[in-house]
Design a protein around this nucleic acid. Sequence first.
DNA 1: ATGGTTGGTCGCCAA
Length: 260
Amino acid sequence: MRAISWNVNSLRTRLERVLGVLERHQPDILCLQETKVTNDQFPHAALAEVGYKAVVHGQKTYNGVALLSKVGLEDVQIGFPNDPVEAEARVISAKLGGLRFINLYVINGKEVGCDKYVRKMGWLDALNQWIGELRAQGEEMVVLGDFNIAPDDRDVYDPEGWRGKIHFSEEEHQRLAAMQAHGLEDLYRLHHQEAGLFSWWDYRGGAFPRDHGLRIDLALGSPEAVSRCSGSEIDREERKKGTWEAKPSDHAPVIVDFQE
DNA sequence: ATGGTTGGTCGCCAA
């Protein structure tokens, strides 16, 4: 079973590239973030043509998450209980192959200390409470998506420059640690230990050619997910301009494989 | 500290 997480930065702009990713990697489940499309404008027909059915949680202009699958999804849940920013479409989850896939688009936070950063912390606290409740009920899961947090020095191109900044601050790391304390492990790090393996590069300042990236797109797994996880890769090629007419997203897809 | 680029939408906000 193959899962992919990808922040597409507008599904309508990126549809051709999404179809390319589906064809190249043949995932059982594709978890999209920043679809930036309302549910009534979601491109269901184009995805159905290649065999994928989508469950969606969108809004106009901002945010938006979706799950695509060609093998069916069970127990779909939109959002989570007691979300302090319920109007923002940031979470959708469903069960597949004995695991609940919880697809996240975490609040960016903009800058440490600003009101958006404070909202990010409160939102992560509420999310962690829900994840803790599910885990206490024995739910096995993969929590994946755009976390907007780089876990450690290996995940940042300039750790000293980034330390204490947005995506790499102590308070964000506390929230990530709190999530992991519910028994979740970084599935990518089960298979790769080296530094400099990134999932996001800023559009600005030639960040991709300079390889000034961060690994902020994560997949965390509970014990059953960990024991079944057979590999994980970042499709860095997808971040290149390549021969595609459409431009790349600023995020690369994160692929995670599981034994059945 | 600022700037740089992209997307949604049409003067900016968000990332």
